[in-house]
Amino acid sequence: MGMEKNTGKTETLNFVLRSLKDSIRVSLTSIGIDGEQKDQIFHTSKPEISVYPDTTFVTAEKLYPLRHLTSAIIDLSQRHTALGRLITAKAITKGQVVLAGPSNTMWLKEIITTLLHTNDICLIDGALSRRSIGSPSITDAMILATGAAVSMNLDTLVRKTDFICRMTQLKTVENNLATKLAVIEKGIYAVQGNEISSLPIPSMLMIEKYKNVLFSCGKRLFISGILTENLLKFILTLKDVSEVELIVTDFTKIFSTALTTDLFIKRGGKLRVVMPTNLIAVTINPFAPSGFAFDSARLHNALAERINVPIYNVKNIL
């Protein structure tokens, strides 16, 4: 997953593909492309993802002809995406492809399951706008690509990257509670010990109105949907923030800004997840499209001071 465009997501993916090519059976797909990106793909897209013989890849019917390799079609979906049906193909020669995937996460899950019947691993090219695929309910592990495209200010770049990393590493709730919460899809709940009780709050948009309801059964809450900036800001207006514990399904549900979220944590508020995300590496691209560049070592060191997962500049280890 890339933090921004041009943070080196494709290089990272190519690096992983290259590293795996002779050892295991690799499959590859992406998440759907939204309308805005669609035109762009047709006009400017060139195949950039390098696959090797026997790699299975999934892409959309309309992007399949853009490939620069010989590949055999092995499956064709009956459902359609904005770019046509999904084609599963096996590379015969090495070469480049343009990827597009299913338009929703349920479908993506099905495709992953199918791909894993005949492959050892399934890699997913994450789209900027589809953070949800980083959810541990879909993928086992995540690599985050960051770089100068995020900010030309080193502090800002480090702070933003560090925030995402910390959110992926939030503490999880107790196992038995996690089992219960994992199946809940809607609503806000109070958690008292092992007891979960639904709170009658119809919408998070007017949370001020439900001030009395929100903490009527204790200050440990499970928010099954998204954690909004609005809710956190509201909680920050209360006195005893340090007694509040908010539980979300996983880090992809946190939509509050870094500033507000950190303020909540700083004032003693606790943030927990039901499912942890396995962030296995951060890759850096010191170059911004504007031509601006950080010194790779300096960027690496600045991030390493804050982030406790391996950091690579994939261009350096080519």
């Binding site: 390098s50 013989p53 620069h68 010989t70 015969i92 020669t93 090495k94 070469g95």
Partner: peptide, 10 residues
Amino acid sequence: LRKRLSQTTK
């Protein structure tokens, strides 16, 4: 041609 292609990398 395909043989040559696999020997040449982009």
